[in-house]
């Protein structure tokens, strides 16, 4: 039963090799979907290209539904999955800062790496920017610490937060995604086409 590496089905020594293979697939999919282009990525915020939205939500849904099925069929124990912890204010403030960085720079860390791989110099500068950002955070950690460690709610899921069962969430989330996809197509048709 999965997860395979933590449960010792696959020896731990393979971990880094599997990491590289998973990374190769990740980079390939992102690049082939057009995520190495900052102008394509930024399109979602101006209504001329919704690839980010579609790829992102489709991926989240496929993973979510797939995990539930694997749990249901007994291949995987949902309870042993790592759940990203919730630090309420850190998530909000950090997310907001990332949002500004996204529109200003046109990349997020994963996509900037793909762009670096195909020779985009703006992406290389962006990665240097990220490292400076990490450096500033670390040097001023004392200042950020209350935000970073505050309002810790545990490794909670939406089920804990709302008390609704997970199947309902997946169902609602799927409906929302389909509506968003349809809306995005309508918006794009109305907007001026931009070539890049």
């Amino acid at each position: 039963m999965g997860p395979l590496i933590p449960n010792g089905v696959i020896p731990y020594e393979w971990s880094n090799i599997i990491a590289i293979l998973i990374g190769i697939a990740f980079g390939f999919i992102l690049e082939a979907s057009g995520f190495s282009s900052s102008r394509k990525l930024a399109g979602v915020f101006y209504g001329y290209d919704f690839a980010v939205l579609k790829v992102f939500f489709t991926a989240a849904l496929v993973a979510l539904i797939g995990l539930l099925y694997m749990d249901y069929l007994g291949y995987l124990d949902m309870g042993s999955m790592y759940v990203h912890p919730t630090y309420l204010w850190g998530a909000i403030v950090g997310g907001a800062i990332m949002g500004v960085g996204f529109v200003a720079g046109g990349f997020c860390p994963g996509t900037s790496l793909c762009a670096v791989a195909i020779g985009k110099i703006d992406a290389l500068v962006y990665v240097v920017g990220i490292m400076i950002g990490v450096f500033i955070f670390s040097e001023l950690y004392v200042l950020f610490q209350p935000l970073y460690e505050g309002a810790f709610e545990g490794n909670i899921t939406l089920m804990d937060s709302f008390g609704i069962n997970r199947y309902w969430f997946v169902f609602i989330f799927t409906i929302i995604a389909i509506v968003i996809f349809k809306l995005s197509d309508m918006i794009r048709k109305r907007n001026k086409k931009i070539f890049y």
């Binding site: 900052s38 992102f56 991926a59 989240a60 993973a63 990203h84 912890p85 630090y87 850190g90 998530a91 403030v93 950090g94 997310g95 907001a96 800062i97 990332m98 949002g99 500004v100 960085g101 996204f102 529109v103 200003a104 720079g105 046109g106 990349f107 997020c108 860390p109 994963g110 900037s112 703006d122 992406a123 500068v125 962006y126 990665v127 240097v128 920017g129 990220i130 490292m131 400076i132 950002g133 990490v134 500033i136 955070f137 670390s138 950020f144 935000l147 970073y148």
Partner: peptide, 24 residues
């Protein structure tokens, strides 16, 4: 690009992850 990266790097530390690790 430099400024945007700087903000993203800072934000990703505060939120303990970026679009891949935290959001997706």
């Amino acid at each position: 690009a430099l400024g945007g990266g700087l903000l993203f790097g800072l934000g990703a530390q505060i939120a303990r992850g970026c679009t891949s690790g935290a959001a997706l």
